[in-house]
Amino acid sequence: MIIMDDKKKNLLKSSLGVIALLVVLLLLPLIQTSMMPFIMNLLIMSFIYICLAESWNILAGFCGLLSMGHCAFFGLGAYITVMVIIYFDMTLLLAILISVLFNSILAYIIGAISIRVKDIFFAMVTLAVAQLLFSLSMQWVDVTRGPRGLIMPPLYNLDRRYLYYIALAMVVIYVAIVLLIRRSRLGTMLLSLRDNEILAKSLGVNTSKWKIVATIISAVMASLVGSFYILYIRSVQPGSVFTFDVTMKIMIVAFIGGRGTAKGPILGAIIIIIDELIRGWLGGTYAGLPGIIYGLILALFVVFMPNGLISIFNLKDKSTSRSAPKKEVI
């Protein structure tokens, strides 16, 4: 009989759980019921937010750069993809590549900004960039058609089931990327930026370079989700991608799951499912209620459970999660 130590046992247990979950998710679309489109929509929406939260995690969880305009990358990805297809009549793949290129340029600029400004300044710069893009997409009616938004041409009309598998694959890849980054040299560098930038600098870490690299990785990830979003929803309006609500949802997913962890957002996606259910249940009545619940959840989680849901499950991701806030010594 093979004797396993605790660590291996835990690893086996958690990997068995992950495999079981994956198999269930893979087989799910094969079931034929009338509820299936609804369930699939729920899952795809939560997959989108898991991916976005993973990309946000690289900036905010690893580097400590609290990005409050993450919807800018996501929305720009969606907008550029559909604009290239509509106005220049290019193929989908090329459109996605171009949107990634644009996002990298934006990320380079924001990364360059992040070298100069910190904490709340960085948060405000990213917020302002998102606001800028929102105003631009609202006002530049000739190109973006203003608040009515842009509609994807019917050429790329994929079956919902394929989209589901694409989204699932994206989630798996994104989680793997974040895990890999965490375990690589790059992850260690980024964590050192978060914990003590001056010390990291003095030890010879090129902080400016790694900040820009992290921003670009994060932006490209968010941009690809944006391209997927336009394939799935088939239309994009300024109000649905560039508003603060989107950033809010991303942050809530990341926070509830556990900031700075790779597996956290998967748990955090529960909130997206709950949200869609509440919205469906309430319909158009009680317009502000979901937002109130969101705000309460966010504030209460930061106060009472700063490490997120993942701290309950006690998965082997502890090293990256933040320690509980210490009381300030006076």
Binding site: P290, Y294, G295, L296, L298
Partner: peptide
């Protein structure tokens, strides 16, 4: 942490 908490409060008031 304060930024996130105040953001939650802001969301509550606004909604």
């Amino acid at each position: 942490d304060n930024m996130i908490i105040t953001m939650g409060i802001s969301l509550i008031i606004q909604n």
